[in-house]
């Protein structure tokens, strides 16, 4: 009869196992990158330019003769690092702002909400493009820009659940005790919205990868010669019309596999939460 405070264990379906496996795989290669790839991802080889996939270069080589497989494997690092860092910023600040705006309605909360709304009126791709142009492209810029642009989204989600929770009578009971507002927020409300925050973090991670890759693809993210999926596609995109598909196809596949896996996991956690 005793109910554990832990979230109900996830029902592991085959699909979920595959998704988890893919995410773990990319996490693994992003950590051990250079140690396990067959070639140096930065090594230029004029002799081996634009080789189609073969036994030696399973994913072929790019215009500078670099091994695509090695670059795809090592390229998972920048995208995962940037999106994780951005998600951390967004979730932590978004939660703080969301808790505040949800529990202390008033003048300041209204101003906050209005500013968030202004940010959310524009697609993140567009806004981050502007910001990156202004600040100059670099990993740090991308992390900051995505992190900051996601704060309003997280804050709005958190605010909505906090609003709902604060109407529940357990909060009223805590007020009557009387508990201080900060204690109520941290002790009473926060444990009840942790599930939402976990779901939101997973969803945000997926979108952070989405935006990171898109910015790289537009040449506004990670700069050459760092191996990076979006950047690899950006660099080799011009060759596509000449029939050279492999330097573009494999990184595209890598992005798709990662974001799909993460979002399906997010979906499952979400359904579990309800």
């Amino acid at each position: 009869m005793l109910r554990l405070p832990l979230p109900v264990p996830l029902k592991i379906s085959p699909l979920l196992m595959i998704c988890g496996g893919i995410v773990l795989f990319w996490a693994f290669v992003s950590i051990f990158g250079e140690m396990i790839v067959p070639h140096n991802p930065l090594a230029i080889s004029v002799m081996e330019r634009l080789q189609p996939p073969s036994a030696k270069h399973i994913f072929g080589t790019d215009a500078l003769g670099r091994d695509v497989l090695s670059r795809v494997f090592v390229g998972s690092r920048s995208v995962l690092f940037i999106s994780l860092a951005a998600t951390t910023i967004a979730i932590s600040w978004g939660t703080i702002f969301g808790l505040y705006a949800g529990y202390f309605p008033g003048y300041l909360s209204d101003v906050l909400l209005r500013i968030f709304e202004a940010f959310m009126a524009l697609p993140v791709v567009l806004l981050s493009m502007v910001a990156v142009v202004a600040l100059g492209p670099s990993s740090i810029t991308v992390i900051l820009v995505i992190g900051i642009l996601f704060i309003p989204v997280v804050a709005k989600t958190v605010r909505a659940v906090v609003l709902g929770e604060s109407k529940r009578t357990y909060v009223a009971a805590a007020r009557l005790l009387p508990e201080r507002p900060l204690v109520i927020l941290v002790r009473e409300v926060l444990p009840n919205i942790s599930g939402t925050i976990v779901v939101e973090a997973t969803v945000r991670l997926g979108y952070a990868i989405f935006i990171t890759a898109t910015l790289s693809f537009l040449g506004l993210g990670v700069q050459p010669p760092t191996p990076d999926w979006g950047l690899m596609i950006y660099e080799s995109f011009g060759l596509v019309s000449a029939g050279i598909w492999w330097p573009v196809f494999f990184p595209a596949l890598a992005i798709a596999s990662l974001v799909i896996s993460i979002s399906l996991i997010a979906e499952r956690i979400f359904r579990n939460e309800r």
Partner: peptide, 22 residues
């Protein structure tokens, strides 16, 4: 549908281009 939503548009674009144009 979930998968289609989360894949960046440029990846979808590239894959469509590779398959249907080239």
């Amino acid at each position: 549908a979930m998968a289609a939503t989360t894949v960046p548009d440029f990846v979808i674009g590239i894959l469509l281009l590779l398959v249907f144009s080239l």
